[in-house]
């Protein structure tokens, strides 16, 4: 299991994976804890500010379960290293805060046939989709074009809490074979009116990532 990004999504996702008794977690993150992270990045505390997120994450997760094996990778994800970083993972959890890196992970997961649990949040809105390579659409099928970059977007901390927990749930479902994964459906959570909705997503035969000419 790999969690890429230990922020608002990666925090609850990895906590619930560790608490569920996952034996081995690969954590990928190259950032340090900042005070503004603390409203949502529940792996880290005030006393961790300035330290690497990997350090506080490893400490927190091994406190939850002493036999968990945590592999920390202190690297920025790039097109060059992404295949190597995710290779061998049973599932990759999307804890990124930007589309370029999400697209890299999406492509690498499709290429290496690793399930990818996509999540993203902003304000009181979140989205979630499980990508099972060769069985359903990928992130690029659902969101073909990168949404504009915003330097700052406020996030109500509980929003990634909701989506990150659902990412952990999708991950646990996949590895245990329980239930029906969120494949070909994008879940939209809107905390403003407290609704959960689904958008049907089909695999695009001309998708540059998972279509005929992709991979």
């Amino acid at each position: 299991m790999a969690v890429a990004g230990l922020g608002g999504l990666g925090s609850p996702a990895s906590i619930y994976l560790a608490a569920a008794g996952i034996g081995h977690l690969t954590l990928i993150d190259a950032q340090r804890v900042e005070p503004s992270n603390l409203n949502r990045q529940v792996l880290h505390s005030e006393s961790d500010v300035g330290q690497s997120k990997l350090k506080s994450a490893t400490k927190k997760l091994t406190e939850i379960h002493s036999n968990i094996e945590v592999d920390g990778i202190y690297r920025e994800i790039t097109s060059k290293n992404v295949d190597r970083l995710i290779k061998g993972a049973d599932v990759v959890v999307d804890g990124m805060d930007n589309y370029p890196t999400r697209y890299l992970l999406n492509r690498a997961c499709v290429r290496n046939r690793v399930p990818f649990i996509h999540g993203a949040v902003e304000g009181l809105v979140g989205q979630l989709m499980t990508i099972l390579p060769s069985r359903g659409p990928c992130l690029k099928c659902a969101v073909p074009k990168e949404p504009p970059k915003k330097p700052h977007f406020p996030v109500l901390g509980a929003t990634p809490g909701v989506i990150g927990c659902l990412q952990a749930m999708e991950t646990i479902k996949l590895i245990t074979g329980v239930g029906k994964p969120l494949v070909g459906r994008m879940l939209i959570f809107n905390g403003t009116d407290m609704t959960f909705d689904e958008i049907k997503v089909n695999r695009d035969p001309s998708c540059p990532v998972c279509g005929k000419h992709g991979r």
Binding site: L9, E122, G123, V155, I199, K200
Partner: peptide, 11 residues
């Protein structure tokens, strides 16, 4: 069936 939504980016 047409679906219109604003993809979100943060994490």
């Amino acid at each position: 069936v047409v679906a219109i939504f604003p993809p979100v980016s943060g994490g």
